[in-house]
Design a protein around this nucleic acid. Sequence first.
DNA 1: TAATAATATTTGCATATATTAATACAAAGG
DNA 2: CCTTTGTATTAATATATGCAAATATTATTA
Lengths: 120, 120
Amino acid sequence: MRSIGKKIELLRSIAHPARIKILDELAKGVKCVSDFEEFLEISQPNVSQHLSLLRRHGVIDFYVDGRLKCYFLVDPMIPELLSVLNTDHASELPAPACCPVTRKGKYPGERKRKQKTSVE
Amino acid sequence: MRSIGKKIELLRSIAHPARIKILDELAKGVKCVSDFEEFLEISQPNVSQHLSLLRRHGVIDFYVDGRLKCYFLVDPMIPELLSVLNTDHASELPAPACCPVTRKGKYPGERKRKQKTSVE
DNA sequence: TAATAATATTTGCATATATTAATACAAAGG
DNA sequence: CCTTTGTATTAATATATGCAAATATTATTA
């Protein structure tokens, strides 16, 4: 399995509005730099910076085609992650039924669930 | 579907070694603060900070049980994301077969794929 | 070979995030 | 009440990230 460090590296690569849009596009197919420049509304150097970050982190790569650099996905986790992120989830997870506190022994006996007191 | 902003918020919440460990644990069941203190090797205040961040971002919540606060997952995307992250993916995605450049018209004619020249 | 097109790199600054230490608070239990 | 236990908040500082502007690089076309 991928190390914690690698997972964090991947997540941080994705966790940016420009980059997640880039990846959503690349999930559909190869694109070159100026393609992104058009539909993201950021400068060319900035597009390049994001692409180069994604490449440094092993998420994407490119091949050269004349003057163009054609970027594509290489990390097989990306399409799956994007697909989860793009899924509609109906509702919150159910709250835990009881109170399975793990610090055994210290606070024994019955513990009924109390009000979910706000702490703001 | 969740907005870009919300996706980024979620990803950034997850993208930290302590927090992803916290979430991996919570995916197994309810835990209180001092449970984390043990198996993460960070101070109690730091654990609290991470938990409170996750709560602010709507990823987890807690109920009070005597002296303890029992934390649990609320965002239904989390278990799925963790499961993808914890999956072994055999290999890289296949490189694109040809060169489907989208900037039509500007560079017409045949474009053969060139060497994937390293740019380090 | 000069000009242009496409992309990349560097630098500096602003903002955001992380870590640590000190302190505060709140609920139980005596 | 007074103490202990469990958790939270604040403040100070360090580190990382993001962006814009200027400049560089590389391949193609004239």
